[in-house]
Design a protein around this nucleic acid. Sequence first.
DNA 1: GATTATTACTGGCATATGCCACTATCAATT
DNA 2: AATTGATAGTGGCATATGCCAGTAATAATC
Lengths: 151, 151
Amino acid sequence: MSKDAFSATSACNNATLRRAARKLGQFYDDAVAPAGLKATQQGLLYQIHAGGEPAMGEIAAALIMDLSALGHTLKPLIRDGYVETFNDRQDRRIRRIRLTKAGEKKLAEVMQLWLVAQRRLEDLIGAEKAKRLRTALDEIARLDLGGAPAP
Amino acid sequence: MSKDAFSATSACNNATLRRAARKLGQFYDDAVAPAGLKATQQGLLYQIHAGGEPAMGEIAAALIMDLSALGHTLKPLIRDGYVETFNDRQDRRIRRIRLTKAGEKKLAEVMQLWLVAQRRLEDLIGAEKAKRLRTALDEIARLDLGGAPAP
DNA sequence: GATTATTACTGGCATATGCCACTATCAATT
DNA sequence: AATTGATAGTGGCATATGCCAGTAATAATC
């Protein structure tokens, strides 16, 4: 097998998705790096901002991410002073999240960089194609893949 | 914003891709878990097997993954005796990878589980749609997003 | 209202990934 | 051959993510 042909065009949907995610992740990461953030962090800041003081569980559900994973991911952002958590008034189990002043500022900064990457990518593959791709990916994200069986 | 509406249908290609990757990753992870492996490990074993004693760099390139990341990811597989590395005869910089006997056996086992997940997913979204999605993702993976500038 | 079940997180452990610095080789130049 | 430059990996540090085992607090039940 030639080195060139060995470019792993797998039939596995998961493997293909991960490869593309690594590629795109690097691209967006590079783009937002001047702000000192990873693309995942930019996305997280955006979600928190858009969520209006969301509960951790709400963010986790929206991002289809494990709650504890979200907790871990938040730590550097809290440490760096971009995000803070606080207890819900009604339900003391719930911890809500919001951006700090510095977080809002950083979000504005990083979104500028994000936009450059977003546009450049869509110039490359076409806005329509990108939209179709996102639609297909959202469909995957919304699939009911059967979690816990009924009691 | 209602909790239900807050399902994060972002315009960001990267965020959308990551969400889908988490979802699909969990699905394939669950499916192959009985073999004691993650879906990423199944994919890696498969690549190594398909590669014919590939060099680490070849695998990394095929998977669009950082070379050091590959090294890290290999460690548990080496520790568990599924994979081994050895030096190239000609070029002593190169380390090649192969499955051990146990690794081949484990691969055969895990591919059975993988196939169930793969089929179930394609039953859900349709084999044609899945194929189109993989094609689109492969296109992303092959994009030239401008790495290092020419000297 | 006390017991039980459920929900929302937190912390610990493990894998996944990436960047950077360093080492070991091989290749190209002079 | 000695120097210089390019390759291939390794190891350390950091973030990304997930599972599982608690903990705390609300809801449900008797």
